[in-house]
């Protein structure tokens, strides 16, 4: 499945400072759909190069990270259970505090 993943607010530093990743994620054997839960574990294995605890906590993202699926808070689409479809754009952004 073709997806666009974007990292911002400093999270890009965990994947070699690359902000936009066009990726191809295969469905796990025996599964019919790809959920955000599956994608997070895929990202952790394939994209996060350092300090995974700065990206994830348990099976979800760490506190302070907003997840947006097609410009919409994932809280509105079912968080980890959101089913992804071809060409979805998923943004992971760390909240900023500076000023």
């Amino acid at each position: 499945m073709q997806l666009t993943l974007e990292f911002g607010g400093g999270l890009e530093l965990l994947c070699q400072s690359v902000k936009i990743h066009k990726v191809n994620v295969d469905l796990q054997a025996g599964k019919e759909k790809l959920t955000m839960r599956d994608l997070l574990s895929w990202v952790r294995t394939n994209l996060i190069k350092e300090r995974p605890e700065m990206f994830m906590k348990g099976e979800s993202v760490r506190p302070g990270v907003l997840v947006l699926i097609n410009d919409c808070d994932w809280e509105l689409s079912g968080q980890l259970d959101t089913t992804l479809v071809e060409k979805d754009v998923i943004v992971f952004i760390s909240t900023l505090h500076g000023g």
Binding site: E53, R62, P63, G64, L66, T95, H97
Partner: peptide, 12 residues
């Protein structure tokens, strides 16, 4: 939006 504060190491 942020019920739990992020770890201090994430606060640049």
């Amino acid at each position: 939006l942020f019920p739990t504060p992020p770890p201090t190491s994430a606060c640049q």
